[in-house]
Computed example of a mutant assay.
Amino acid sequence: MGTNELYPAERLAAARRATAAAGLDALLLTPGSDLRYLTGYDAHAGERLTCLVLPAEGEPTLIVPVLERPAAEAAPAAGVRIVDHADGTDPYPLVRAALPGPVAAVGLADRMWAEQVLALRAALPDATQRLAAEVLRELRIRKSPAEVAALAEAGAAIDAVHRRMGEWLRPGRTEAEVAADIAAAIRAAGHVTVDFVIVAAGPHGASPHHGTSDRPIRAGEPVVVDIGGTMPSGYRSDCTRTYVAGGPAPAEFTDYYTVLYEAQRAAVAAVRPGVTAEAVDAAARDVITAAGYGDAFLHRTGHGIGLDTHEEPYVVAGNPRPLEAGMAFSVEPGIYLAGRHGARIEDIVVCTTDGGQRLNTTPTELIAL
């Protein structure tokens, strides 16, 4: 898949129209997923200013440190003027110079560093600062066919890592030792970065964001493995499976894993256009609650995924947004019993024109190694 398919030039024009419609004079985007979405440029985030100035009317300008100009020029973006600045010079007047006419309101990248926010406030003292997400959320929330293909490629790569888990996950090895092997395999499977590796055995499995530790894995302990990375395309993977190695799992665990398995299947089956995000959450949560484990499901059912691991739409109670074709998100219910063990099953699912498509295809049954 070519970068021009993933990062088409018309995105800039669409963003300019949406900027004007939102009553903003410009978007100001520092390194991050919004900048990459519009230009394909995976910019380095540092103390030197990199900023895409996208006026509602007028040509876009990418302001970069002079030492990073070659990387910016190699990005897929077409029709973006590049202006560089040398160390020791103030780059913020370049932002003002790239904006035609008076500026009353600008949209800033949601995760812009505070020092840059304040410097832009000083450079544009008459401009109200709002979030660029007001404009870009609606552009990014529905994935193009090329983006879905990139997410499917990421899903296949992380599936390949899960299929190898029996090589590494054995009683007596520590969570950290297993995680190191997994991280190497994530890269070997085609990812350019490892974003996270959770290996949570026994009581650690009851903490959804545990990470790893030097505690050895014991025979028959449930182990939650949640892993993800970024592909060369910029698109992300995220998949969780729960394993048992070296012996039978506790009977209590296998009982509630069966509940979790049915809950995850029910939520995936609920995905189709017009169904709300909160209804998908309820499809999983109702199964778990009916079995008596409602208080042990500690988090939302899912999050959108694309150039960020967590983005819109969020599959959570209180989100009445109807699903639309092209929306991509995780479906990952979990059950967590403090001090004992836990389990989570996570697939990335894309809403299609008539249902949902799982991008992770490994089995979701409890996996005995």
Rank of each mutant, 00 (worst) to 15 (best):
E5T: 03
E10A: 12
A15I: 03
T19S: 09
A22T: 05
G23L: 13
A26N: 12
P31N: 05
G46S: 15
E47G: 00
R48G: 02
V53S: 01
E57G: 07
V64Y: 07
A74G: 08
P76G: 07
V80P: 09
V80L: 10
Y92A: 00
G107W: 14
R111E: 14
A114H: 07
Q116E: 14
R121E: 14
E134Q: 14
P145Q: 04
L151Q: 02
G155T: 06
A156V: 10
I158G: 03
W168A: 04
A179G: 09
D181I: 00
I182M: 06
A184Q: 13
A189Q: 11
A189Y: 05
A200K: 00
P203Y: 06
P208T: 07
H210M: 06
I217Q: 08
V225S: 08
G234L: 09
R236T: 07
G247R: 12
E252P: 00
F253L: 11
F253K: 11
Y256Q: 08
Y261R: 14
E262A: 13
A266W: 03
V271E: 06
P273L: 13
T276I: 03
A279G: 02
D281M: 01
A283S: 04
A284C: 08
V287D: 03
V287K: 05
T289V: 04
T289Q: 07
G292H: 12
G294V: 06
L298W: 07
L307I: 07
E311I: 09
S330A: 12
I335Q: 07
G342E: 15
A343S: 15
I348R: 01
T362S: 04
P363D: 12
